[in-house]
Design a protein around this nucleic acid. Structure first.
Lengths: 220, 220
DNA sequence: CATTATACATACATGAATGTATGTTTTCAA
DNA sequence: TTGAAAACATACATTCATGTATGTATAATG
């Protein structure tokens, strides 16, 4: 009972692609997904939306991915994780002044982000996403990868401390959390509103964080 | 053509309520909404979910609210805004040591939050929600109310500065953004993961923010 | 070169959520 | 005391996204 409306071929585009074509389709779908998720949110994006943006049908999407949640996961693996690891890699080569290195790294990160729309979209997607519904299964794994990053950060502070570049009474855990929270809040605010202009604010904000409110005049 | 399956009344509960009963139903629905949104996320919560939790049917929900988005908005007006204004009110009564006052206020805020599950849920709902789809119409207004808060914060710093309690070369705008971002990131992290234990971390984290990384030993 | 598996496009079936229409009971106002 | 309106519960219609089944043309493979 399966009848095509038109007897003549409906397939005007050539079908079976070369392996490069196939991977390009996959990338197109992922890119389309990022844009749609970033624009309308994950849960307000249908597979049809993604397919249309990518210039394919849902058939192609289902060929490459099991469902929308798997696209989300693929984005994490293909785009987010590499980006994070690239940032963390910078922390590996040790500097004579770890704290300054960190400050410069963060400043650079922010300024780079301000010039890469796709990175902004990916960041915005994973920075504080709602792991509910079909995304629930990925919460644990994505969280684990985040904690791994935090552990590296903490180790970084510890090394700096051991090398005498950081006060012995500073707590690496507290430092890590402070940085993490500040950076997270900053990025979220930057990506979701327009009250922060990274080009203008990145440097002073980072500096403010590093210097604290030592500006207090008369401590009680 | 509209026929009830049972001829005898299906309405076992008494119907028309007193005005207090009505308001109680409304509150029940709002409370049910908070719990469901907090648990499964706004977009993964159906009106049926909310109705069931509240012990009513969708009929009652549609009587009190136009749709799910209006429930969201009502939560903002009824629960979130009052909470924010309560916090901001504390900033009005001026202290001899504004910076210390601020530090204590923030610490207190965090510790209080740690003991009030409903406040946590409301916070988690509005702190960084996804204003897409049916929530898009509220983005501008909620953002405006947020910027109003930030303006008050900035005025607070400016007053502190005028009173000579804050270094004249500190930038109230940068200070405001720094605090906002840090607090936002901290709250989001606290509400969405378990890596932060407010009871243990609130004080040291706030102190860390206020003191900065003055721990750098040998600035290049 | 024939075949097979690939890389999709199209068609179909289903369920879930929504919005609305209507029914019912009770309170309250006239 | 008697409508009328309030405060819901129930029933209905429609949309929309999803998942799957199937068709089909081409590249890869032997």
């Amino acid at each position: 009972m399966y009848v095509f409306k038109a007897i003549r071929s409906c397939y005007n585009a050539r079908m079976r692609k070369t392996k490069e074509d196939t991977q390009k389709t996959r990338q197109d779908i992922l890119q389309a997904a990022v844009e749609n998720f970033s624009d309308k949110g994950f849960f307000n994006t249908s597979l049809n939306d993604i397919a249309k943006t990518a210039g394919v049908t849902r058939g192609a999407v289902y060929w490459h991915f099991d469902n929308k949640a798997e696209i989300f996961d693929a984005l994490h693996a293909d785009l987010h994780e590499p980006f994070i690891e690239h940032v963390l890699a910078d922390l590996e080569n040790d500097s004579p002044h770890p704290i300054l290195q960190l400050r410069d790294l963060m400043t650079r990160l922010l300024l780079e982000l301000a010039q890469n729309p796709t990175k902004q979209q990916v960041m915005g997607l994973f920075l504080n996403c709602d792991y509910s519904g079909v995304l629930a299964p990925f919460k644990a794994r994505h969280k684990a990868s985040k904690e791994e990053s935090l552990a590296l950060f903490q180790a970084y502070f510890k090394r700096a401390q051991d090398k005498g570049k950081l006060s012995p009474d500073a707590d690496p855990e507290i430092l890590t959390l402070t940085f993490h929270c500040f950076l997270k809040g900053l990025l979220i605010e930057y990506l979701n509103s327009d009250i922060i202009d990274l080009k203008a604010h990145a440097k002073p904000l980072i500096n403010q964080l590093f210097e604290g409110l030592k500006a207090v005049h008369d401590p009680a």
